[in-house]
């Protein structure tokens, strides 16, 4: 893909602290992600794709991986995870606003939790979590929306893997409680 070299360059510039590069990366990444996610939601694509798969596929399309270090890749994925959150929440909103609209959605078999999450309410809870502990909120983005491994998250955040796991458990418990007992309603 011809825009790969430029994406790589942006990635490197972002890593050296150039914030403009990050914004331009987002410009590049977002439509790709949204397109793949939407295609999956319309069930045009492989039904077994998880969020993590989608992000990885997008990253692969945009970046020449062999020229990017593992930690750079993880940062990129973390960025993509945040976008995935926006895409999915937007999707949930549009779905909520047009209830009667026949939604073409896809199956996911890897989650078999008892309860179904309401993404709109999760979004409210995440906004509050950001105010309490921004790191926890980012962890949720990376893990829940991005499907990132604890190892990759450790690489991005500089925390140890056990810490990532423990913090993820905290975030999960807090969110689950917040979803069960929303304070704003």
């Amino acid at each position: 893909m011809e825009h790969r070299p430029e994406t790589n360059a942006l990635l490197l510039r972002w890593q050296t602290g150039e914030t403009g590069a990050r914004d331009r990366l987002i410009h590049r990444l977002y439509p790709e992600l949204a397109q793949i996610a939407a295609a999956r939601l319309r069930k045009e694509r492989d039904s077994s794709l998880s969020t993590g798969d989608i992000i990885n596929e997008t990253v692969l399309r945009l970046v020449q991986m062999e020229r990017v270090s593992l930690s750079d890749r993880a940062h990129f994925v973390a960025l993509a995870s945040r976008m995935m959150r926006h895409i999915l929440v937007d999707h949930a909103r549009s779905k909520g606003s047009a209830k009667r609209q026949h939604q073409k959605v896809e199956l996911v078999t890897q989650i078999d939790g008892g309860q179904r999450l309401d993404l709109n309410r999760l979004e409210s809870a995440l906004i509050r979590l950001k105010a309490l502990d921004e790191g926890l909120m980012e962890l949720v983005e990376m893990r829940y929306f991005g499907g990132m491994t604890t190892g990759d998250i450790a690489g991005v955040t500089g925390m140890s893997e056990p810490t990532v796991k423990r913090r993820w458990q905290v975030a999960r418990a807090w969110l689950t409680d917040a979803l069960a007992n929303p304070i704003d309603q």
């Binding site: 995935m84 959605v105 939790g113 829940y144 807090w174 409680d177």
Partner: peptide, 25 residues
């Protein structure tokens, strides 16, 4: 105690976000 109870119930799975859109109640 509420946190501990929620911890046992948690429905958030790694990469599970997309699954939330999959099914109506």
């Amino acid at each position: 105690q509420a946190m501990r109870a929620a911890d046992r119930l948690s429905a958030l799975e790694t990469g599970g976000a997309i699954g939330t859109l999959d099914e109506e109640l």
